[in-house]
Design a protein around this nucleic acid. Structure first.
Length: 496
RNA sequence: GGCGUUAUGGUGUAACUGGUUAACACGUCGCCCUCUCAAGGCGAAGAGUCCGGGUUCGAGCCCCGGUAACGCUACCA
């Protein structure tokens, strides 16, 4: 076996990308890694994979820290707490990747590619049209040293690609690795593409960065999602090219939507911020995640399916994990959360309500919207109830303008959702984004904002819309629109 | 299309190394409690284990062949 020997110290990691709200899948994989490390007196490392500058969201990293801590999944090493193998932010390690890419280049395990994205796009389209697997055609694989020198001298941007055997000196035709949950998995090399390792902007792709970092950070077990299985042969090839020991691989099942597709924000709330702000307790979410895929003995706590993180560390069995993708079912999560809420003492419950529903920060922001709008304090609730409610479904006479029919209204709401998803949650970003959409679709500012107001607040009368949405939060606002659209869809289906 | 993975009620999981009418939880439905709604209590329906072969006295568990779903197939992770 080529996997890590048992004497090696256990070190695991999660490596989220700061591309938006922290994802529930990150929490799931984080939980598993956390348990694995704690069970074996190992180290749990948090590494930030911020190598994609096009998708980078500056506020994302802090949200990842906050939400993982909220769940109780603390790490031993990471960008904020340091550690002996730093830096733990990949953008601060670009020099390391460049050096390692050079090693690969020198050993003939990688090569420079001068093809432009546009050229590659053309080729890919042709291949797809011809029903061929879209793959790099190898144009630059055998450039002479002279040609490469000329291109470099001409300042042509280039990427560095993995030279997948058997084209090179190594004539092995396939790569086999062991997945600890599924056994041996083999990929023929003609199904493995010459993956880009170093992009033309000098940043590495996931494949290079994750292998280099996992080795340098002495990661013993790579516990990640199933979607990585297909690219694992590339990683194994890299370990071999460097002459490094290969870690154990554990590919965990993918959380699913109700329709069994990979969990996605289109069909499910996936933001941990959403779960926090909608009043889920971290203990309940952790417990629920622990139910996904199994792993806990069925008789724990009399088979109530209720257990703590500490109990998971004590009893969880990794080899018992089921690899069929579990549906992330909000219905059961809600039940579980209710169980946890009921288990609190009345005083603890009150404290949770006070801090999570009527937190000072939240109330302060809402108050500032209300001061000019009420005459007695008792009216406070009249215009603000939507801030404290979960089910806000406006009746048709509230959201439907006399000038618009149902279909175009729902279509426009769908457009609003898409625009809002892609917009920073600030007044300066939201206002022009919404107005631009309105102009494109010929919806007046009034129609535009009134529809959104109806969806968010359930009423035609409310505090200023954008300010309200900002206070209410992006995750919850988007979810409210999604649920509105879903509810309308169901209604339409019933009528038929 | 290619490659890979997976497959137990609607959903999440159980079922000792193959051994009685496939178990539990959520959800659904009904009843009780009750001013309402929850919670709680009691009960019911719902799968014959993706399909087809094979091995065996016996298969959800083993073997072979299908099918379907999902994932990957980017200068994203």
């Amino acid at each position: 076996m080529t996997s890590a020997s048992s004497e090696t110290a256990i070190r695991v990691r999660i490596a989220p990308s700061p591309t938006g709200d922290p994802h529930v899948g990150t929490a799931y994989i984080g939980l598993l890694n956390y348990i694995y490390a704690r069970q074996r007196s190992g180290k749990f490392v948090l590494r930030i994979e911020d190598t994609d500058r096009t998708r980078f969201v500056p506020t994302s990293e802090q949200m990842i820290f906050d939400s993982l801590r909220w769940l109780g999944l603390g790490w031993d090493e990471g960008p904020d707490v340091g550690g002996p193998f730093g830096p733990y932010r990949q953008s601060e390690r670009t020099e390391i990747y460049r050096e390692h890419a050079d090693i690969l280049l020198n050993r003939g395990k990688a090569y420079r590619c001068f093809c432009t994205p546009e050229e590659l796009e053309v080729v890919r389209k042709q291949q797809i049209a011809a029903k061929l697997p879209p793959r790099y055609p190898g144009t630059c694989r055998h450039l002479s040293a002279e040609q490469i020198g000329q291109n470099l001298a001409a300042g042509k941007p280039c990427t560095i690609r993995l030279a997948v055997p058997p084209h090179g000196a190594d004539l092995t035709s396939s790569t086999t690795f062991r997945d600890e949950l599924r056994g041996q998995i083999t990929f023929e090399h003609n199904n493995v593409d010459d993956q880009i390792l170093l992009k033309s902007d000098g940043f590495p792709t996931y494949h290079l960065a994750n292998v280099v970092d996992d080795h340098l950070m002495q990661i013993s077990d790579v516990i990640r999602a199933e979607e990585w299985i297909s690219s694992t042969p590339k990683h194994v090839l890299l370990y071999k090219a460097f002459g490094w020991q290969i870690p154990r691989f554990w590919h965990m099942p993918l959380l699913r939507n109700l329709d069994k597709s990979k969990i996605s924000k289109r069909k499910n709330p996936v933001s941990l911020i959403y779960y926090r702000d909608s009043g889920y307790l971290p203990e309940a979410l952790i417990n629920f995640l622990g139910l996904m895929g199994g792993g806990m003995p069925a008789d724990i706590n009399d088979g109530t399916e209720q257990f703590t993180l500490a109990e998971m560390v004590e009893h969880f069995v990794f080899t018992d994990i089921r690899v069929g993708g579990p549906v992330f079912d909000l219905t059961k999560l809600k039940w579980l959360n209710g169980e946890y809420l009921r288990k609190l003492t009345p005083e603890d419950f009150f404290q949770v309500v006070r801090s999570r529903v009527f937190g000072d920060d939240y109330l302060r922001q809402i108050s500032s919207l209300m001061q000019t709008r009420i005459e007695t304090l008792a009216q406070f609730g009249d215009l603000t109830s939507f801030f404290f409610s979960d089910n806000v479904i406006p009746p048709q006479d509230v959201f439907l303008s006399k000038k618009r029919n149902l279909e175009e209204t729902l279509n426009f709401a769908q457009d609003q959702l898409a625009v809002l998803e892609a917009t920073d949650w600030t007044h300066d970003a939201l206002e022009p984004a919404l107005k631009k959409l309105g102009e494109e679709k010929s919806w007046s500012v009034k129609e535009n904002f009134m529809l959104l107001r109806a969806i968010i607040t359930g009423s035609t009368m409310s505090p200023p819309l954008l300010e309200s949405m900002i206070v209410f939060g992006k995750a919850r606002s988007l979810d409210r629109i999604r649920r509105f659209l879903e509810a309308q869809k169901k209604l339409a289906a019933q009528k038929k």
